[in-house]
Design a protein around this nucleic acid. Sequence first.
DNA 1: GCGACAG
DNA 2: ATCTTGTCGC
Length: 235
Amino acid sequence: MNNFDGNKLIQEFSKIQSELFPRIKLENNFQIENVQLIAGVDLSYWNLNERKYGTCCIVIIDYSTKVIVEKVYSYGEIQTPYIPGFLAFRELPLVIEAVKKLTKQPDIYMFDGNGYLHYRHMGIATHASFFLNKPTIGVAKSYLKIQDVDFIMPENLKGSYTDIVINNEVYGRALRTRISVKPIFVSCGNWIDLDSSTEIVLNCINNESRLPIPVRLADLETHKIRKLLMESGME
DNA sequence: GCGACAG
DNA sequence: ATCTTGTCGC
């Protein structure tokens, strides 16, 4: 992760993103009735001997009962730096490794980060869809400002939202999942529409967090696994 | 030098 | 993302 050529990396990454972009399909007559299992994906990091490591956790829940159905994780050294707009290149290697360990196949993956709400519509949720071949949703905790466009704060009511429109195109929305708590930023990943994404996210909110359960659980899990790996010396 | 900046 | 305790408020 050291001495890399930042400009060369960004050029290479931008090219990959622009090549994937035409394959995005948001109008997919997505059927929520067919959703049974939802996966939440998240990562956490730590340093050791001048190197950076990370763990990716995936938690699958049953959409109707909210019961945890499966948990898996992967971990390893992180090879790519964090560059705003290119999060996928840093996190996807471990995500893909973790996905291989799943014994159940989720109907949807929810990511901690954006999807279509991105400079080139290629946030991690969208980028990941091409490896997962499943619909994905992006859920970010903070706003990634694009082309100087600010988001409009939604009303202080659970479920209220404002769309984020840039050049006449809806990129995503600021969604208030709990009253008197900062909104989250929901966007399509791929093969799903924004209304369905919003409905699913809202249906996964409980009293524990402003984040939907799958992502929240994956987040908690990464902290547990990191602690476990660090204490065991990470052999 | 200063501000931006998903995680 | 990460470094980190108590504390104010519903």
